[in-house]
């Protein structure tokens, strides 16, 4: 009962110093917005680079005596393999037509048994153990009946693997440092609200208020400010994102908003740090 009363008091206390609370919420919102914007840029940059770097092509050649029904069936199967983005197929007939167009031949050329069925298989390699995954995919494609040869550029795989490694080593710590800075700034920002109540806190302490009686309303108030301002910052960021996306979409970059997990982590971190910050921001007599 007492706890509920203290929680309610923490909420109602916010209305007693509206200007201070508004200033704190505004500054917190700006801090979280800036931090989250930077994370959004990093996140999209990483995503776009991974998409560009992590795409590899397998060139497949079937033996020229392979029956066309078997090859067609395999093309359907290959398209369903996890990791395959797209499949570009070329029948011997299509190949000869292209050659004819290219070299302006007008006579019909007999192609029976000369040209093989071929396909270009575009795959997105995973971040975890890309080399092993590529080898497994290579083995799988090679094992298909009638396949004579499968080729890919191992240098592309090495490049992708090293980019993934850099991304893990660099981007995650940068994002974490950024989150920590935002969290610390949040803790400091909420002190302004608590500082406005310093006199009241001292008096409460002098008349025998328990630490919980003093701290719970402050923590509740700070938590509300943290939750409110970080949610407001995320909403503002989403607004900016929605405004900018149509302008950027279609160019080289593909923009995506922050995943739910990052949004939840950001809001939770700010809320926790403002709550903790409120606990350590006054002198307890």
């Amino acid at each position: 009962m007492m706890l509920l009363r203290l929680i309610a008091q923490g909420v109602s206390d916010l209305a007693r110093t509206p200007l201070t609370v508004a200033t704190t919420v505004l500054s917190l919102t700006v801090v979280v917005f800036l931090g989250a914007s930077f994370v959004l840029v990093l996140f999209n940059l990483d995503r776009n680079l991974k998409a560009a770097q992590g795409e590899v092509v397998f060139q497949m050649y079937w033996r020229s005596d392979t029956q066309k029904e078997i090859v067609f069936q395999q093309w359907t199967t290959i398209g369903d393999i996890p990791g395959v983005i797209s499949l570009e197929t070329i029948t011997p007939q299509e190949a000869i037509e292209k050659l004819q167009k290219r070299f302006h031949f007008e006579d019909n050329i007999s192609i029976d048994g000369i040209l093989p069925y071929t396909a270009l298989v575009y795959v997105r390699i995973p971040e975890t153990d890309p080399r092993t995954w590529m080898q497994a995919m290579y083995d799988r494609l090679m094992a298909l009946p009638g396949v004579e040869q499968v080729r890919y550029d191992p240098l592309r795989v090495d490049l992708a693997a090293s980019w993934f490694a850099w991304s893990k080593r660099l981007l995650l710590p940068v994002a974490l440092v950024l989150l920590s800075l935002v969290a610390l700034a949040s803790g400091v920002a909420v002190r302004a609200t608590v500082a406005a109540k310093q006199e009241e806190i001292e008096i409460l302490s002098l008349v025998g208020a328990s630490p919980a009686y003093i701290r719970i309303p402050l923590m509740v108030g700070a938590a509300f400010q943290g939750l409110g301002s970080s949610s407001l910052a995320m909403l503002s960021l989403y607004g900016v994102y929605s405004y900018l996306t149509p302008m950027i979409q279609g160019s080289l970059l593909v923009l995506t908003f922050l995943p739910e997990s990052i949004i939840v982590i950001s809001i939770t971190t700010v809320t926790i740090f403002t709550t903790i910050g409120s606990c350590f921001s006054f002198r307890n007599l």
Binding site: E199, E202, I203, L204, S205, L206, V207, G208, S210, P211
Partner: peptide
Amino acid sequence: YLLRRQVSVVFQDFKILPRHTVFCNVAL
């Protein structure tokens, strides 16, 4: 705080909440 519930103190500079009512201050 347990001590302060048994031992009260009055200061020269009052240490009351000026914007609160007399009742609120005494009831605190």
